[in-house]
Amino acid sequence: MNLELFDPPALEGTVALGRHALVLRGLALPWVEDLMPALQALERESPFRNMTTRGGHTMSVALTSCGELGWVSDRRGYRYASIDPDTGRPWPVMPDAFRRLARHAADKAGLGPFEPDACLVNRYAPGSRMGLHQDSNEKDRGAPIVSVSLGIPAVFLFGGFRRGDKAQRVPLFHGDVVVWGGDDRMRFHGVLPLKPAEHPLLGPCRINLTFRKAG
């Protein structure tokens, strides 16, 4: 196994994607020991599921949430809800390690203070993808988006303000964090289909923690 795929020494520090958009290479690595058990507890309480889009398609990415609000997709559209529709209970409380990492990342990117009330947890398998989209369901668009990558590598697409604008292709590795807000808050973004790979901690899987101020 080539561990350089997951923490390549050539990719360190920060990468600017826009005026108010940064990749913080490896920022989450010191937090992984606390993130993993919190993630496992979250999955037990609100398991991952593949939701249906407004058009009736099943998403290739499995999803769960934690915090005061969770993201929901079905035939009625995309929205935030305080209740997990699969369990009928409130979404799990956001783990302290999650919240502290999100605050830290926003501060490092110069976009703090940040108090997220929603964390979307996406699980990607090889071949799964996320099409270009804007995060537009949040009431507070003045707050940044903080996106944490764990597990196998992915190629993040960071585009313009129209879906057809050319998108940057940004490789993301275990522990990388992307933060965008301010002038860049409404940029289209997505993830290319993941290539087959195996991670020492997560196996053939990528976990993405996306923190938002939704309410």
Rank of each mutant, 00 (worst) to 15 (best):
Y124E: 03
C119H: 08
Q134I: 02
G112M: 06
A97W: 08
D107P: 00
P116E: 10
K108Y: 15
R129K: 12
N122L: 06
M130P: 08
G131Y: 07
P113T: 02
L132A: 10
A125T: 15
G131C: 05
R100F: 07
D107N: 04
H104T: 04
E115P: 07
M94I: 03
G131W: 02
R103C: 14
R129Y: 15
A97P: 12
M130R: 03
M94F: 09
R103N: 12
A118G: 14
S128W: 04
M130L: 14
A109G: 03
R129T: 15
E115W: 00
M94H: 01
A105Q: 01
L111I: 05
A102K: 00
R100Q: 08
A118K: 11
L111N: 05
A109S: 01
A97G: 09
G131A: 12
F98K: 10
F114K: 07
A97T: 08
A105L: 12
A106D: 03
F114Y: 07
G127Q: 01
S128C: 04
A102M: 00
D96P: 02
N122K: 05
F98C: 09
M130Y: 07
Q134Y: 04
R129S: 00
G127T: 04
D117I: 00
N122C: 02
M130G: 11
A97S: 14
M130H: 03
Y124S: 03
R103I: 12
G131R: 14
R103Y: 14
D117S: 01
E115F: 05
A106M: 12
M94D: 05
A102F: 04
L101F: 09
P126D: 11
G112A: 01
A125S: 08
S128A: 10
G112L: 07
D96S: 04
